[in-house]
Write a protein that binds this DNA or RNA. Structure first.
Lengths: 257, 257
DNA sequence: CGATAAATTGAGTCTCCTCAACGCCAGTGG
DNA sequence: CCACTGGCGTTGAGGAGACTCAATTTATCG
């Protein structure tokens, strides 16, 4: 089954959340992918006490802008986001796509203004974690500090991997690698790693991968006609996993789910 | 005057530090560029109490390896380092160069094994900050937490900028931008921003910038013959700052020092 | 249903890579 | 002192991958 975009919050689909409905980390299905992972019940409750009510955003709405004063950090709850930076000359680089359970805003810690802008790719919601309160909480919760540091480390590692992608890989490998990695992220969230929908436009994806849209389009076509994937607009079905790995220059074997 | 490589620790040049000599953050000339920036005297003393003795490394020696168990973080005290990640297939990407006052090892926080390997580019020394002790200290020092979060944010922002460089810029712009930015980092450390020595090989720089060594070599020659810079092996003299900015596609004006 | 944006396709070009050879410099050992 | 060696950097020739520009098709939305 193909998830309807990245909308993973099934509760929210059934009973649409009003702006302000309190969501508890303790009962959140994404907890293991998010900051709560590995925390004690007490720490979880502490965290719950400062996490602000779910904030809902429409497509193309900004969660925060580069240069904003004091910004909280956000945990994606449903939907998805892109972050991008813009040079003085107007050049844009999309620096990441964020799925439910992932943390946005790590470039705006310690009172520093974020260098990136975060924009919802579809109707999305986030849990807001105010920086001041979070910092206070960190003073008394070792587990929380550790968990957060892990989140930070993974984000840095992800960006390093992206440097590898942009610096060393061919266009083919970039796309193949992206499709495989995105699949794995869906899998972590309980969805298929071989059938999913993209929530970003060709333009956004091309920019993220450092390619021209035309090149990206041709690559999709090439993968399609080589029988690697089935692409229909934003729907992706990975047909030949092994071959896609090979295209990504990665000797990854798909593990049984 | 051209600094002899990145050796900024003049004390160390005069009286070579023995392995184990205690260096105080309180009296460190790099404090303002490092974690100590903005801390109270008390916090500084606390930090001093856990910072381990200076560790000296020769050229090509590793500070830590990708996958190492519990790794401390390190503040570069003298010399310089490169960090790199390696894919399973053996592809390498250099992810950063680190000068005195900068923090290495942020991809290994919270007990996570670092994804990168750090290697000294020349004879260098570092201050070791053990993760456990540092975490404990963070519990009681708001300023320390804030300062560290700022370091983390800047590192993430730096990597995002690198994604922009690799994803959007031409080869010319990449090199020009690198030379300018490196100059600014030297300036922060009290050196000329237009005359300095590179501590990394052409190979390392090319890899970092996502270029072939041959391309890099041709670029240096091109910049040289256009009168932008004077390049002699690893010595760099920026002659036409404005033109170099233009090559970097950046409308930066050089501020008087 | 028409207007606008998104995506695809085609043609031609150029940037940058690859491969190969050569020059330069430092260190080594005879 | 000098040839030898090996790493590092440069130079040249040729080619391929990805870009640009332009036109067309396909979606999206009022």
């Amino acid at each position: 089954m193909i998830p309807d975009s990245y909308m993973l919050d099934k509760q929210a689909q059934i009973q649409p959340t009003t702006q302000g409905k309190k969501v508890e980390c303790t009962s959140c299905g994404l907890a293991n992918l998010c900051i709560p992972h590995g925390l004690t019940t007490e720490e979880l409750n502490n965290l719950d006490s400062i996490v602000k009510n779910k904030k809902k955003l429409d497509r193309d709405e900004a969660l925060f802008h580069a240069g904003d004063k004091i910004t909280p950090i956000y945990a994606v709850r449903s939907g998805s986001f892109k972050t991008s930076i813009t040079s003085k000359e107007g050049a844009e680089q999309i620096t990441g796509f964020y799925l439910p359970g992932e943390i946005v805003g790590l470039d705006g810690l310690g009172g520093i203004a974020p260098s990136s802008t975060a924009i919802a790719l579809e109707t999305s919601s986030v849990c807001e974690i105010p920086s001041l309160e979070f910092d206070k909480l960190c003073a008394h919760n070792h587990g929380l500090r550790t968990s957060f540091m892990q989140v930070v480390s993974r984000e840095i590692a992800r960006e390093q991997q992206m440097m590898m992608t942009l610096g060393q890989m061919s266009a083919d490998a970039r796309l193949a690698h992206f499709l495989l990695t995105l699949g794995l992220r869906f899998k972590e969230r309980g969805y298929s790693d071989v059938e999913y929908n993209l929530s970003m436009s060709r333009h956004d994806l091309a920019n993220y991968l450092g390619l021209a849209v035309e090149t990206l389009s041709r690559l999709f076509k090439k993968f399609q006609s080589s029988g690697l994937v089935d692409v229909k607009r934003r729907s992706i079905i990975i047909i030949d996993y092994e071959a896609l790995c090979k295209a990504a220059n990665t000797n990854c074997t798909r593990k049984a789910s």
